[in-house]
Amino acid sequence: MSQTMTHGRNQTMTIARHRLPRSAGTARARADGAGRAWTGLADALWAEWTKLRTEPGTAWILAAICVLTVAVGAATAAATRCSGGTGCAIDPTKVSLTGIEAGQAVVAVLAVLVISGEYSTGMIAVTFTAMPRRAAVLAAKAATLTGLVLAAAVVAVAGSLAAGRLILAGNGITAAHGFAVVSLAHGSTVRAAAGSVLYLALVGLLSLGIATIVRDSAAATGAVLGMLYVPPVIALFLGSEPAWQRWVERYTPTNAGLAILNTTGLRDLVISPWAGLGVLAAWAAAALLAAGVLLHLRDA
């Protein structure tokens, strides 16, 4: 209905109320309750994707993930030499992919920014007012973060493998000396590469969960980086307690997750590669579940 307003003392003014067209929205709402939930999640996804892509730092952080992973992997490969030419216990794929231990820090920072940025600016009030279904908000953040991290991780892992293969060959770590070759024709290398990409995505999800629980950005960064980097050192210092050391090496996120990098010497590992990634997935799921419960219980 249109509005007509005419001025003048002798003419009447009619103000028509502007009504939303009733047909489409309510039909959807009445006929299919699940459909409205789906629409809600799609809206939440689009909102989160908009937040991430319009934030200027996101592109830089994704680039930093790739660059840091490839750089650290290349540096490790360059520093790896076998003094005798043969007989060293070197796993070329693992050496090339060592960079993800540095790249995971940047992934964690991205995850913290995704959620703690909302709390520090006060945007969280607007977000939860516009999307009252907080689980959908958390799921949408997790989905968009995972998508971006997967994209960056694929680039990073591919670059690491290529750089590692070239540099290690230059250092004499070749098939002629009895070492495995970094090649995607080998199933173990494909497993390590795919596992590394999943590893970075799971680290992102774990960090998102912890950051949602902690909320304050600086404390969340400290907590997340501590969770990632402290357990390996604790495992090292538990030499006098083998039972505890074994537990820490098997069931803490980074120690277990990094088992996916191994392609040789699988029988000597503390935990098998996919089981290790499963442990990390369990930690990420637990963190996100706790975050969801807390989001539901708290004010914001």
């Binding site: 400290g222 980086l225 980097y229």
Partner: peptide, 13 residues
Amino acid sequence: SVAAVAAVVVVIV
């Protein structure tokens, strides 16, 4: 704050 905490952890620890 996030950048600062990440930077100090990376540089020192």
